[in-house]
Design a protein around this nucleic acid. Structure first.
Lengths: 93, 93
DNA sequence: AAAGTAGGTCACAAGGTCAG
DNA sequence: CTGACCTTGTGACCTACTTT
């Protein structure tokens, strides 16, 4: 990083309000939410909220409820392509 | 760019349908497919399609499948001098 | 001169890694 | 599983060069 550079020009993570490190999967997020979203793609359906589905995601509690965290990712617009998942169901050559 | 100039007189990229920026390696392509083809030449053999070898290349998903993107480059006629023919005889997908 | 392309550059994001 | 860090490919922009 150059001297005098602004450390976090991307503002806050749109998911948990931590510091965003860049635009990831279409949304400014921190490294944590970026990695979480990537890992969640193949298993997102299985998440379930135990607190009523209205959890407020913060840097401190973001690992408390995967369901609400992942829901916020989707609601905010994070996406890996979109059509890829249909394609994944087809066979390779 | 002069005032009144047409931004993309070359039409659409023959590979991914993004906007073409000129004729590159013999084919009207965007900057992305131009750079991808240039980088691919020394390693194109190693690409492999995991989706059946029939991927439709679009600006959004063009980085999903290097094999099909590169195959389309070759099929569409992109070439760097004469080395193209050697590559065509090797495996792809 | 103008027009146009090959190849270089490098900030940026995707995906991988692995200690915790 | 998490997330700070790492590696690698991408593509918008740039320069150098050719052609007319």
């Amino acid at each position: 990083m150059p001297v005098g550079a602004i450390p976090f020009p991307f503002g806050d993570c749109r998911i948990c309000n931590d510091k965003a490190t860049g635009v990831h999967y279409g949304v400014a997020t921190c490294e944590g939410c970026k990695g979480f979203f990537r890992r969640s793609i193949p298993k997102g359906e299985k998440y379930k909220c135990f607190f009523g589905g209205q959890c407020v995601i913060s840097p401190q509690n973001r690992n408390r409820c995967k369901a609400c965290r992942f829901k916020k990712c989707l609601d905010t617009g994070m996406a890996i392509d979109g059509m890829i998942f249909q394609i994944l169901h087809s066979k390779s050559c």
